[in-house]
Design a protein around this nucleic acid. Structure first.
Length: 544
RNA sequence: GGCCCCAUGGUCAAGCGGUUAAGACACCACCCUUUCACGGUGGUAUCAUGGGUUCGAAUCCCGUUGGGGUCACCA
């Protein structure tokens, strides 16, 4: 068979030689040990926690080593394209401080452009043509029906499915048959002529999983689809070679196709990059757990976390604790260090998939938010409110002095210990709501209606906003004594049967009347912030 | 089903042949306290299973079980 003639018929025209491309996309000059990693999403525009998880790992490894992180868009499948998706990916990741050095819509080092695979069609065809010329690839005229019939038959016979060996019908088509099909205008794909034998095992070192054994590939995989666009596998080999990726860090769902990639790199005469296959983030789904899925878990989209108002750094810290098991310990020891100073290591990544734990994220969030100053908190809350808050919430920011006082109280500024009441912006806004809006729903009082009125009236007759906290509380004690409640906690604890309750119960009545809630930060301070008129009005409103 | 990966408390996990099997989250109790939050002290709870190897196994080997992934002209 004249492979050159066939190649010319299949992919007519002159294509540059491999040497040309080797020169066009030269090896990078980078310091020793520097890693070139990449993110290569398809442009669906949807990113979830799992993507962020992988993105952080790639970013850290590139930048810790003084290397490069680039963004390549795998748009070989037209069905997946969504407008504005690339910008959405970039901005979502930027929110978590993940910056690309080069790539689609970013630019940077133009040497390795373009970063959209559709714009790289020529190079894929050049190498496909070369493989055809070498007899390592061939046209296949099988239709989708042929293929699914084949699959059905193989399934029925309990054989391995796929296009391989004796099942690869078009593999040994005669020259006449090929040209006849071509003359008839039949569409074709280009398949790799696999030389592998699944009996052979390949020992392979994975940067995360360690030594793994994989089976040699024997599938004649499609490398060029009928529209002349490469499949992922082929594009991966070409792009990661010519973009000079040193470390391919990707999800472990790719481990199964690693044999294909190994054979492709060999067939093309490229040196393989190193690989690390990271486990995916899992989600509890009923009795079992499964990989996060963009279809099934919309609540795990990054957008969800922005809407809830999770603090970006908190999400990142949590991801880091899952990513590198020694991160948490390091962070405890170096609470003030830059996160980027953490010595991130691929080999410290877990081999088994971690269950996403919202409790833990919330705990991290509380701690992170408790590190902020009042000013930082205001700007964090305001950014959130401007985008996701209600009109009323945005008005909280109009009286900045009041807001500062509220936050200082709720965050425990000035006290010995910071409070940790805030987990997200939306929750914090809800938490401080009663300072700005009269509570509509009050928690139920636990004293009798008569006691409630008596306590509230007793407070109103004594209340003076000029009182300091001590005087104020001594008045509360008076009210307690007057109504048959113990003024001193220790008296109550000693003889609970002698009292209706304690001063704590009295304070609770005042707290609910003032804020609508049974649990709040210090009540005296709250009343100071609210002002005498507002306090009286609220309490009066509860005496009906 | 074939192939591959994985397996320490409810969750994330340390551990690399000898430990009372760390730590964090969650949970419980107590302390602090006018409530809550914070903080403090203590507690419940883990080596999937069966065989080896070894003086000695969570750690090494084999089987079993369980979980996950993958088997496209999608990535």
């Amino acid at each position: 068979m004249n492979f050159h003639a066939l190649a010319e018929r299949l992919l007519p025209g002159d294509y540059p030689s491999p040497a040309f491309y080797e020169e066009k996309y030269p090896a990078r000059t980078l310091p020793k040990g520097a890693e070139v990693t990449r993110l290569a999403p398809s442009p669906t525009g949807f990113i979830h926690l799992g993507n962020l998880f992988a993105a952080i790992a790639n970013e850290r490894i590139a930048h810790r080593s003084g290397g490069v992180l680039y963004l390549r868009i795998e748009d070989t499948d037209l069905k997946r394209k969504v407008d504005g998706a690339v910008e959405a990916v970039i901005s979502a990741l930027k929110y978590f401080d993940i910056q690309f050095d080069e790539g689609a819509e970013i630019g940077g080092n133009e040497t390795y452009a373009p970063w959209y695979q559709r714009q790289r069609a020529e190079i894929y065809r050049a190498f496909a043509k070369k493989l055809i010329e070498e007899g390592r690839a061939y046209p296949c005229f099988c239709t989708e029906e042929d293929l699914s019939a084949l699959r059905d038959e193989q399934t029925k016979n309990k054989e391995i499915t796929g296009y391989y060996g004796k099942y690869a019908k078009c593999r040994n088509l005669s020259e006449e048959e090929i040209y006849k099909n071509l003359d008839e205008g039949k569409p074709f794909v280009v398949r790799l002529r696999s030389l592998g034998n699944p009996e052979n095992k390949i020992k392979f070192h994975d940067e995360i999983k360690g030594d793994v054994t994989v089976t040699e590939n024997d599938q004649d995989v499609v490398i060029l689809k009928s529209d002349g666009i490469p499949t992922y596998h082929f594009a991966h080999a070409i792009d990661d070679h010519f973009m000079r990726t040193t470390l391919v860090l990707r999800g472990e769902e790719w481990l199964a196709s690693l044999p294909i990639h190994i054979e492709l790199f060999d067939a093309l005469g490229f040196t393989r990059p190193r690989y690390g296959h990271n486990c995916s983030l899992m989600k509890q789904d009923g009795e079992t757990r499964r990989k996060l899925s963009k279809r099934k878990d919309p609540e795990l989209s990054l957008e969800f976390y922005r809407k809830e108002g999770y603090f970006a750094r908190a999400v990142k810290v949590y991801m880091l604790t899952l990513l590198n098991s020694n991160f948490e310990e390091w962070y405890l020891k170096n609470p003030d260090a830059d996160l980027n100073d953490f010595p991130f290591k691929a080999e410290k990544m877990s081999k088994s998939g971690a269950l996403f734990d919202l409790d833990k994220l919330n705990d991290v969030s509380k701690n992170e938010l408790a590190r902020l100053s009042v000013e930082e908190t205001i700007s964090f809350l305001q950014n959130w409110a401007n985008e996701f808050g209600t009109e009323k919430q945005r008005q909280y920011f109009s009286d900045e002095g009041k807001l500062q006082a509220v936050l200082a109280l709720c965050m425990g500024i000035g006290g010995k210990k910071r409070r940790k009441d805030f987990t997200t912006a939306s929750q914090a806004m809800e938490f401080i709501k009663f300072f700005f809006e009269r509570p509509v729903l009050h928690e139920s009082y636990r004293v009798t209606d008569a006691d409630k009125r008596s306590i509230l009236n007793g407070f109103l007759s004594r209340y003076n906003a000029a009182d300091d906290a001590q005087v104020w509380f001594s008045k509360v004690k008076e009210i307690a004594a007057e109504n048959g409640f113990a003024a001193e906690m220790k008296d109550y604890k000693a003889n609970p049967e002698n009292y209706k309750g304690s001063v704590a119960d009295v304070a609770e009545v005042l707290r609910i009347a003032t804020t609508g809630r049974a649990n709040t930060p210090d009540l005296w301070t709250i009343q100071q912030i609210l002002g005498e008129g507002e306090v009286r009005a609220r309490i009066q409103g509860e005496i009906v």
